[in-house]
Nucleic acid binder design. Sequence first.
DNA 1: TTCAAAGGTCTTGCTACTAG
DNA 2: CTAGTAGCAAGACCTTTGAA
Length: 258
Amino acid sequence: MLAKFIQKLRKKHNLTQEYLASALGISRPTYMQIERGERELTITEAEKLASIFGIPFEDFRRAKDSSITVEIKKEKLKPKSEKQEIRISVPQKNLEKFKEVLLYVLSKVGGKPNVGEAVLYKLLYFIDFDFYEKFEEQFIGATYIKNHYGPTPVEFKIVIDDMIKNGEVVKVEGKYFNYLQRKYLALRRPNLDILSGREIEHIDDVLARLSDKNAKEMEIYSHEDIPWKTAEDGKPLSYESVFYRNEPYSVRNYEDEL
DNA sequence: TTCAAAGGTCTTGCTACTAG
DNA sequence: CTAGTAGCAAGACCTTTGAA
């Protein structure tokens, strides 16, 4: 049945209930009801899960139909007032990691003239997706949306605002050639205890490869990557699709394994 | 063995609906 | 229009698990 199917996928991807609940914008107990078959999925929830798991939405329908005949719950009409705006919640643990990665990246390359917000987004994207390809594990595990200029981490705004408030980074607006550029500078050292040696090495590797590209070059570069190409506009990029990457994007040597 | 994180359950409060 | 109620979601709390 669908509930078990979702649970299996979650475990296969090493994700927590907390993480998926926040990705769906619901509380953990509510998410639990889904895994226990006590609550139906809304269409948009099913779509989100499908994209997180990197499987076609159709597979959910099939898993569902193989049980009995119950309709996927109709999307409830939102209560008229405020509540409308999209809520993005970040699990505490990932937030810590996001912060430290950000500080680490900023402390290493934040001072480079080419590294503004746009380049930062893409560096984070490659850090996350390359890590997933190499180790089949989530690193920061941020959600990257397909935007006109490239992959955009949806959690970025929340995290950076929080950090500015706490005096951990400062925002600087300036010009880079003729473009308005938004830069961030780290005000404290990253806490390296949060990151493993393997993770730091991985970030260093990505930075060495990509941190000298400017926003335009990064944009062009990221637009040829498979996860980008296979995503729909405005929708999250699928982590699973990294396994369909080809040269020069692939960061894993598949022949060595087996 | 201890502690933090994840999983599981109970209770509370809100909203929408209905009968008077 | 109001009081009663059913259903749902979230917070609070408890238990289990696993890493150090």
